[in-house]
Computed example of a mutant assay.
Amino acid sequence: MKRTHLPLNGLRVLDAAARYLSFTRAADELAVTPAAVGQQIRTLEDVLGVVLFRRTAKGLELTPEAAAGLDPLRQGFLQFEEAVRAMQAQQSSKRLTIAAPRDFTAKWLAPRLADYGRTDDELGFHLVAADESLDFTQANLDLAVCLTKDKGEHEGVMLGARGHVTIGRADGADRAIGWPGCLQADRDPVITVADAGLAIDAAAAGLGRATVPALLAGDDLASGRVVEFGRVDCDRAYWLVAPVPQWRQKKVKALVAALTA
């Protein structure tokens, strides 16, 4: 019999009924009705082609065929339990692998991870650069950050609000600073840099004005390193995303709560 066709529910019912020699007590353990236990046993007998129980004057008893398979069946269930425990063991790990754009990591994520890390000495982070095609399985990711219109096919939450801000030094040049994805790419830039984080640094140096995601510039604006010259509407925002299994992990939930507090 192929593994994919193993009647696992029926075998679980067989194990319980064999321990109690009672469909009623087995039903109590499994939180089903005695009739459901009886139906599962009959279905299992049909699948296996053997009789598993007989009713006698003394009550229910196992057939020799059923008795012959009980020990390996129970060993198998024990191995299933060990497999589940092994898979769940990683839940106790507090190390998270996060994919994010490099500029987002430098300007926003890293300082907040540092603050969060100080709350628990067991916390650890592995940061990787995000690309356009996130493969959570291949990269073994727990969480990712994307600058996008919505969360897409994954679970997710938006960080901050949508929109870009134009920033620079009060005494800096009134020339555009360009970067890939810049909303003012049509202006003749005084300098072009690799990402929005470097654009912020160039603006802080007085080279010109950069239009960047508002969330990314928040800390530099708050510190007075740059000043704001206006806002620009944009349908993109930074999103924390993950597939459902990763999103439901306790360590991911805790980090998401900390980053969105």
Rank of each mutant, 00 (worst) to 15 (best):
D174K: 07
V128K: 05
A203P: 03
R42G: 15
A100E: 01
V193F: 07
Q91M: 10
F77L: 14
L240H: 05
G172R: 00
E228D: 12
G10W: 00
Y238E: 03
I41G: 00
A114R: 13
V232N: 08
N9G: 13
R12Q: 10
A202F: 09
E132A: 14
R95Q: 15
A83T: 12
P34K: 06
P7D: 13
R12C: 07
M1W: 11
Y116T: 04
V241F: 12
Y238W: 11
G117F: 03
A17P: 12
D115R: 13
Y20R: 10
W108M: 02
P7M: 15
T56S: 15
A242V: 13
T192Q: 13
L48Q: 04
A194Q: 11
L8M: 11
D174E: 15
H126G: 01
T105V: 07
T119P: 02
A205M: 15
A68I: 02
P245R: 15
G206I: 05
T24Q: 12
Q40F: 07
H154T: 07
E155K: 09
A176Q: 11
T211G: 10
W239V: 02
V244F: 08
D103Q: 13
P111K: 15
D131F: 06
A100C: 05
T24D: 14
Q184P: 00
S22I: 02
V226Q: 07
T148G: 03
A196G: 03
L141G: 06
E153T: 14
R55G: 00
L21I: 01
T56A: 13
A204Y: 01
L221F: 05
A204F: 01
L14P: 00
D135R: 15
D15I: 02
A36L: 11
E155G: 10
V227Q: 12
G59V: 08
T137M: 04
L60A: 03
E65C: 09
M1D: 06
L113S: 11
A261P: 03
L96N: 08
P101Q: 05
I98Q: 00
R3G: 09
G59K: 05
Q249G: 04
K149E: 10
L11Q: 10
A130Y: 05
R209K: 12
C234W: 07
L78E: 14
A27P: 09
F104N: 02
Q75H: 10
Q138C: 02
K149M: 05
T24F: 03
L109R: 06
V50T: 13
E228H: 08
Q184E: 14
A83M: 09
Y20G: 01
Q246D: 00
A170M: 11
F136K: 03
